[in-house]
């Protein structure tokens, strides 16, 4: 299938990435080549095949008992923050 500049722009919007016009055109070109190769998977006979999301099957998600265990302290969680204030992560304006 064919990829348009509009498809690329929409994908970039979803991925929260920005490209200038020439970057986006190059991306579309490379993307098209890769997608053309990927078309081969449409030939596979998958009518009655369930998707496989985990390569090694587990019976069920392992659970633990509901009791408080060791956890990261607030100071440690904030230490790498680009900006912080009064125990919070500080970010630019959220609401217009």
């Amino acid at each position: 299938m064919s990829i348009s500049l509009a498809d690329a722009k929409r994908t970039a919007e979803l991925a929260k990435l920005e490209f200038d016009t020439s970057e986006l055109s190059l991306f579309v070109e490379q993307f098209q080549k890769v997608l053309d190769h990927f078309e081969s998977i449409q030939e596979a006979k998958t009518n009655h095949v369930e998707p496989l999301y985990q390569p090694v099957s587990q019976q069920e998600t392992p659970m633990r008992s509901d009791k408080v265990e060791r956890q990261m302290q607030q100071g440690d969680a904030l230490r790498a923050a680009p900006s912080k204030e009064r125990g919070h992560f500080r970010v630019p304006r959220v609401i217009d």
Binding site: K16, L17, E18, A77, A80, A81, P82, S83, F89, V91, P92, R93, V94, D96
Partner: peptide, 20 residues
């Protein structure tokens, strides 16, 4: 996304443009 750790682009005027 520049919020809790790692690189953050500055200056930015709003959260969305900071993410991008």
């Amino acid at each position: 996304d520049g919020v809790r750790f790692g690189y953050r682009s500055t200056p930015t005027t709003d959260l969305e443009s900071m993410y991008r």
